[in-house]
Design a protein around this nucleic acid. Structure first.
Ligand code: MN
Ligand code: MN
Ligand code: ZN
Ligand code: ZN
Lengths: 160, 160
DNA sequence: GTGCAATTGACACAACGTCTCATCTGAAAT
DNA sequence: ATTTCAGATGAGACGTTGTGTCAATTGCAC
């Protein structure tokens, strides 16, 4: 059962808000999760990704890469990493859940149709109108979903 | 009535932007789609929904309600109705595609967690910042996704 | 009416995800 | 170092959502 105590030195993310693999593992151990070989492999693979990735992608990755891991374990470990704030689970342009590195802070993305890169931005234009909308419609706002889609500069220069 | 003429005046949606069943059928016929029994049944069932509905919900509905329709036909007909602007396909809080009545105009919704009601609103706070974000990040904006989640007044008064 | 292309729907298939449960293992206690 | 067992694994069955195929059916133009 989770809840024990161990080393807390590098349990948190660095300045950029991104966890290193050792930090991610420490965060897991902190919460009482056992450091198994599959979990090490999955955390390593997840943090190596430079773009949003689906669970299935990592299933395939983990099968060939850093040791074998079953589908169930991949799903379970990604869930844990998301709960710990090592990863965030967001929705891509098609509504499919994808994971990105970083805590699930209030954040939105510029998502490139071509390469899938999700560039975060933090200005939120929703808060301004949410209050007004809530009042006008007797609606209690809990949260919102905002993603902007298009094409990044790199992809535009590479295409005719 | 023998020899009655086909209403051509009903090809478009009414003032509220919502299609009636005859209007939806007329829109299909206009585009060369045949008016089959399954299509009538599916259009009828779809326009009867008062909340966003999934294709699978309508598959179940159509099986019991206005005559039998195969799964493939339901999916295909919903796709047609969405293409015609009779329905819109949006994403719910979980990212699942759902259909709502009305043309896929630029629109966002207040989506109730409890009852699923999707209340549209038309003020868009994204346009304001999209330009700036595009410029700052060399990103060509194609579109965006914005849904606000929470609880509607009806559901709040019914719960403790 | 006839003819034929459009349409249907049973069925197979695939992707994604959940659940179970027999087996294995990390790590705490000794 | 060995014991011990709750935590963890993963093969496999299963459910849901959605797509593709194709022989049989049917709307509709003529
Ligand atoms: Mn926001
Ligand atoms: Mn908008
Ligand atoms: Zn790109
Ligand atoms: Zn409600």
């Amino acid at each position: 059962m989770p809840g024990s105590t161990t080393d807390r030195q590098n349990a948190g993310p660095g300045k950029a808000g991104a966890y290193s693999v050792p930090q991610a593992l420490a965060a897991m151990a902190d919460r009482g999760f056992r450091l198994t070989a599959p979990r090490r492999a999955i955390a390593t693979a997840a943090l190596r990704q430079e773009r949003p990735f689906t669970a299935e992608q990592l299933v395939a990755d983990a099968a060939t890469g850093d040791g074998e891991s079953g589908r169930s374990t991949v799903y379970r470990t990604l869930e844990i990493l998301a709960a710990l704030g090592v990863l965030s689970r967001i929705l891509d342009a098609s509504g499919r859940p994808v994971y990105v590195a970083g805590a699930p802070v209030h954040r939105h993305h510029l998502v490139c149709d071509a390469c899938g890169t999700a560039l975060p931005f933090n200005v939120c234009p929703v808060a301004d109108i949410a209050d007004a909308l809530a009042r006008e419609n007797d609606f209690e706002v809990r949260g919102h979903l905002l993603e902007i889609f298009g094409t990044c500069g790199d992809c535009r220069t590479e295409s005719p």
